[in-house]
Design a protein around this nucleic acid. Sequence first.
DNA 1: GTTCAATATTGTCTAGGACAACAATCCCTT
DNA 2: AAGGGATTGTTGTCCTAGACAATATTGAAC
Lengths: 307, 307
Amino acid sequence: MTSPEVGISVVERETGLSKDTLRVWERRYGFPDPHRDRHGERVYSAEQVGKLRLISRLLDRGLRPRQLVAASIEELRARVAAPAQPSPAADNSPPFETTLKLLAAYDDAGLRSHLSLTLQRLGLLRFILEFAAPMNVQVGDAWSRGTLAVSQEHLYSEQMQHQLRQGIGTIYPGRRTPSVLLTTLPGEAHQLGVLMAHACLALEGVRCISLGVQTPIRDIAQAAHQHGADVVALSFSEALRLKAALAMLQELRAQLPQSIEIWAGGALWDHAQDVPPGIRLVSRLEHIPHELAEFGQRHGAPPAAAV
Amino acid sequence: MTSPEVGISVVERETGLSKDTLRVWERRYGFPDPHRDRHGERVYSAEQVGKLRLISRLLDRGLRPRQLVAASIEELRARVAAPAQPSPAADNSPPFETTLKLLAAYDDAGLRSHLSLTLQRLGLLRFILEFAAPMNVQVGDAWSRGTLAVSQEHLYSEQMQHQLRQGIGTIYPGRRTPSVLLTTLPGEAHQLGVLMAHACLALEGVRCISLGVQTPIRDIAQAAHQHGADVVALSFSEALRLKAALAMLQELRAQLPQSIEIWAGGALWDHAQDVPPGIRLVSRLEHIPHELAEFGQRHGAPPAAAV
DNA sequence: GTTCAATATTGTCTAGGACAACAATCCCTT
DNA sequence: AAGGGATTGTTGTCCTAGACAATATTGAAC
């Protein structure tokens, strides 16, 4: 704990709620109810910031603030944890458990070795589908429950990224269609989704180009054009607000010719019911081969020749 | 051009100047001077946004707004381009030229192959010192001059990252002291600096742990403690404001015990004259071995046994 | 020249009012 | 009873204009 009480701009940064919103909530609902320093400026307690963070998360799921501000912290925490899909039965099979144990012990060398061995043992595809993807969810859950520190989540992410890139690096680049441009929208900093998708696509022999994360809309459109991409594939974690994501998707759709498809995937869409027209939801990495086959049919290409 | 006139929140996002700042400049200096829509809300022309973007950049270099708002766009553009260090004689040796040519042609496959070959030809250390580091500068310059699109810079960064990680992956982890924790501060998203430092350290046989980018201060401190790190090494590009960087460094210094050193490196420090006490500036990657030797002397360790 | 105090500049905070966009209700018609 | 359209409630963002702390800059005294 550095300082238990923070100013409004810190709260804005930490919760994503604008200063205006924080002030107007205080005026309307009486929450948050910050102290004032000697100069009359708002000073928020760590507890209130925590509650605001929870509320902010629930807002993204379409709930409205009036009820949320009145609820207790426990209630909010329960709502945040629960109504996602009930977490795929907290897998306790050895690789998962070991990973969490290594993270808990801050054992980076052990983690590196464990991930590398698991990759070699399973092969890249099974490593991703059966291990990396569900593991990411577990790590994300543990982080949001507070079981895992930020630094541990970073460590995990870094090491996993390393393995995935090693894996991708060993694939000889294919030339199958469609040509896919991979990236994330501004504000979405998680790389693992892009890397997993990259690997799955490359394993299908598809030509793909990754721009890393956080590419501005206009630049995605430009790059798609320049590279002659057939598909722009975007990865979304729960870090991005659903509203913002939808708005940006619509903007991108408008800037791209109809001949270029947009595929969207990632955890964000677990909570979403529908997407704007002209966007294809690829909710699971497993569906990628099927999606590629369908693309082939739509575009009259030869039906997915074996790699 | 999507829409030639935009609202205040868009300007905030695009320029990094807060709404408050935009309004108070208008009040004080008469610039910017947005039109108003029928509801009295500010509407900024593309030209004004452009000028604001230039001003925002110059502010980071310590200039003050009063003069800047009065200057013409051309004048600002000249100032942005010029007074950095005069760019190390735009190296035109083959690998550099080829890289820029491949980027200009959006040739990702060619770039991948070119980088990989250069890495194999030079070896990891020379690849970094003689090629990657100066190339990063050139790409950054080209981007800020507008010669290179954002998507091209992303592509470069992604491919270079790939090569560096491949290189790091082949190094058998050493156990030499000091134990180094690598990352960047919040707001610093550039990974290449961390990766290059990681590689240089690993090549010296030093045990190092990377947390990726943008680790919150508190979590850096916690991780350093948990990992038993002797040094926290931080990379800074010019993306971060100098002021913000210094403040965060001071905060981190306060949270770490004196026994843990902080090393700072990266392009940001080319403009800076001095750093807070208790921070060691490692201005060039080439100095890393020397820095390690000095660390050994300071801590009475055996004088840098050969790897 | 340095050092310290006075002054100017600059960003961020404050308050309360206004309104557009969206969601939820209600009522009327079919 | 169900669908559709108007009314009402909710919510986020914008507005003005004033205040002040933190940081530069200037000026005066040594």
